[in-house]
Design a protein around this nucleic acid. Structure first.
Lengths: 195, 195
DNA sequence: GGTGTTCAGTGAACACCGTTCATTTTTTAC
DNA sequence: GTAAAAAATGAACGGTGTTCACTGAACACC
């Protein structure tokens, strides 16, 4: 190993992996490449991660944490619940589009190509849904209503957002369509029920 | 090679690839494994496909064709346009859930792990959207309305359906939720605007 | 200082991978 | 029956993820 960073090899490995992922794609991410990037040898990585998949799992965790943090920040800023709802939807989509490497790892890439993901980790990656469900409840409450299945409704909302984000990232959307308008319409349609 | 099937090595390779994909996942699909399965050698496959990615491309094409066929069958069966709309939405979701290997290859797997997909092929995989747009137009027409951007609206609908299907396939949906209800609600919410 | 123990770090080695291509086998055409 | 063409092979190349016997620096104790 080079020098400094006593215990931050883990961090360095994760950063290197993410950088390579962005730059060269999944197919070109290898343990040896990460090792070269951090200035160590391939064996070293195995002192910090059980295997290649574990690196992905760690990145997913980081991504989930990041998204959850964004939601918390928004919801801790005082505003009408409807405003909160719109903002978290925008935040979700922006998060996906601005962090495609996180997003792809979190949602698109993994299930097929690694062994099945530890359940506990899936659960944590879903924490933002609880915040969504709460927000939906608050919106409904303001209209004098109560949602009988807020968590299901949050999941519906999630699915819609995820659909747009993943199709955009995968470049599957017809280029003739205006991306901004598509996003705006998606949010509008998906949330209008609660406004 | 074994015997029979003069020119259907292509078919055999595709079937073998799909079977291995279902059984062992992407990570365990290799050219040598396909070769073993069809009873040939690894080099043989290269007589029928340029490389491993080309096998995926062919499977995507098959999947697109299959989906388009389903849509055509539904739309050629006389019914109210609203009925058509609901049916194609159901068909899309069912197609995804019943053919996860096709679906994952078509939408989830590829962009990250292979070189960028030929544009022409993406276009063909999107043909079903034109049928969707038409159906939406017909629905609107019956209400005396005209959609200014039917293709955008079809894409919105697609994104929503894709969101649910991909989250379900990836097993990301909370197991406490009722899957049937989630699907039913998704279709209901996504189409109610046009009914 | 010397000695023993620990442990992060190494990189050769193993069994695989996708892909190429000289060679062999099979089929076809005469 | 034989020559030409086509199809199929599998060894070889340079990569992969992962393991593990080994190194050598750091520390504790005498």
């Amino acid at each position: 190993m080079t020098n400094e960073s006593e215990k931050n090899h883990r961090r360095a490995i994760l950063d290197a992996a993410r950088q390579i992922l962005i730059q060269d794609g999944y197919k070109n991410l290898s343990m040896r490449k990460i090792a070269r990037q951090i200035g160590g040898s391939q064996g070293t990585i195995y002192l910090y991660f059980q295997n290649k998949d574990a690196i992905f799992y760690a990145l997913i965790d980081e991504g989930s944490e990041k998204l959850y943090g964004l939601y918390e920040t928004i919801l801790n800023t005082p505003a009408e619940p409807q405003e909160h709802l719109t903002r978290i939807c925008q935040a979700y989509i922006n998060f996906g589009l601005e962090n495609p490497s996180y997003y792809e790892i979190m949602h698109i890439t993994l299930p097929m190509m690694t062994e099945r993901f530890p359940k506990e980790q899936y659960r944590r990656a879903r924490r933002f849904l609880e915040l969504t469900a709460q927000t939906l409840q608050t919106c409904a409450a303001q209209k004098g209503e109560t949602l009988s299945e807020p968590y299901l409704e949050a999941t519906l909302l999630w699915a819609t957002m995820h659909g747009v984000v993943s199709l955009i990232i995968a470049q599957r959307i017809d280029i003739r369509l205006d991306r901004e308008r598509l996003i705006e319409q998606t949010i509008h349609r998906a949330t209008s029920h609660y406004l």
